[in-house]
């Protein structure tokens, strides 16, 4: 399972970096420069990513051409928003340095900091 996640990340990384459609064979060839990996494995994981909606595909002759369904930036922004702005206290999976607070509360923090600096400065 761990390796599957790793391979998914590597495939997405290639397609995001290239910014153009590519076949599973092209991706396999690039991955092979680092370590040997079977074409069927790459093809299977690409199909999983297609199933997850992360890749789009179109027929090019006899092969499928895969493209990233959205840019790395948009994917990152959407998923990080889910992770950080979801329910305020999920299962306590992540320990944030500062919880999200309102704009007024940020102002309150800033004025407390200013007041402390004045005190120590005088």
């Amino acid at each position: 399972m761990r390796q599957l996640g790793e391979l998914e990340a590597e495939i997405m990384d290639r397609l995001w970096t290239w910014g153009r459609p590519a076949t599973a064979r092209e991706i396999r060839d690039d991955l092979n420069r680092k370590r040997p990996i079977a074409y069927s494995t790459v093809k299977t994981v690409a199909e999983i990513l297609f199933g997850k909606g992360m890749l789009a595909r179109e027929k090019d002759g006899r092969a499928w051409l895969y493209t990233a369904a959205c840019t790395r930036q948009r994917y990152t922004a959407a998923r990080m928003a889910d992770a950080l702005e979801g329910s305020p206290d999920p299962a306590g999976a992540l320990l944030s340095f500062v919880e999200q607070i309102s704009a007024d509360e940020v102002q309150a923090l800033r004025s407390a900091l200013r007041a402390a600096r004045r005190r120590s400065g005088s």
């Binding site: 928003a81 999200q100 940020v106 407390a112």
Partner: peptide, 27 residues
């Protein structure tokens, strides 16, 4: 200062009800 900067740079959320944020108490 780090607390202020990170809080200011995150997405503001609607003010919480009772209790208020721990951030100010910590600061």
């Amino acid at each position: 200062t780090a607390m202020c900067e990170v809080a200011a740079g995150s997405v503001p959320r609607p003010a919480l009800g009772a209790g208020g944020p721990g951030a100010l108490i910590r600061l």
